[in-house]
Design a protein around this nucleic acid. Structure first.
Length: 210
DNA sequence: CGAGTGATGCGCT
DNA sequence: GCGCATCACTCGT
């Protein structure tokens, strides 16, 4: 019933069905475990927001492989983010693990994160990876054999909300972000707009050379 | 709580 | 070169 066969079967399904089913699931790496409260769906080559949109490369190769593996990427020069590859092999769809609640290994998670508030330990995709100690070395890890594992929830959360994905540019809004309604560990929404102010060059003073 | 911004490396065009 | 599936910090309310 429960167990690896069930997990593999679930993850082989369509990404829009897999994503909400991952809410409440527990991701474990060693002593630290996180119960997922927020995820986002990315649908391979059909999805302009997906890393797989422009085809297979060295970085996103794991996405094009079989479901049930972890796709980890490095971004913004300092952060890791983790996805669960799902759907049929070659579809390159995946679910981004956006946020969760630390349910085991609290001391180690606090040590890694150094955050005063426990609710912020895994609140955000990069924070979640940091709390779990997941990095590029876990790219491609089999989620059944480990070292990073996923255990599905016995029951689906009572209420699930959906909305637009966070931080994406160049993708039409699709309500492919799923979270457990009312959870305080869900990451704060950040609009997908430019966060660096661009001054019109005509009115900008040249910084270095007058 | 919200808005604003610097830090920082790598994948891709 | 440019742009990023981000975060931590600051300042103001």
């Amino acid at each position: 019933m429960s167990g690896s066969a069930d997990l593999r079967a679930v993850l082989a399904g369509p990404v829009l069905e897999v994503a909400p089913r991952l809410l409440g699931a527990v991701v474990r790496h060693g002593d630290v475990a996180v119960r997922l409260t927020e995820v986002e769906a990315y649908d391979g080559a059909n999805d302009p927001g997906s890393h797989a949109y422009r085809g297979e490369t060295a970085r996103n190769g794991v996405m094009f492989g079989p479901p049930g593996h972890l796709y980890v990427y490095f971004t913004y020069g300092m952060h890791f983010c983790a996805n669960v590859v799902c759907g049929p092999e070659g579809r390159a769809s995946a679910v981004l693990l956006r946020a969760g609640e630390v349910v085991d290994g609290l001391a180690l998670a606090r040590e890694r994160r150094g955050t005063p508030r426990d609710r912020d330990l895994a609140r955000g995709p990069a924070r979640l990876c940091s709390a779990l100690g997941v990095d590029r070395t876990h790219d491609g890890a089999d989620l059944v054999s480990g070292p990073v594992t996923v255990t599905l929830a016995d029951q689906a959360p009572e209420r699930v909300s959906t909305g637009p994905r966070v931080g994406l540019r160049g993708a039409p809004d699709r309500p492919w972000r799923f979270w457990v309604t009312g959870e305080t560990t869900v990451s704060p929404y950040r609009p997908a707009k430019s966060r660096h102010v661009r001054t019109d060059p005509r009115f900008e003073e040249s910084p270095g050379q007058g």
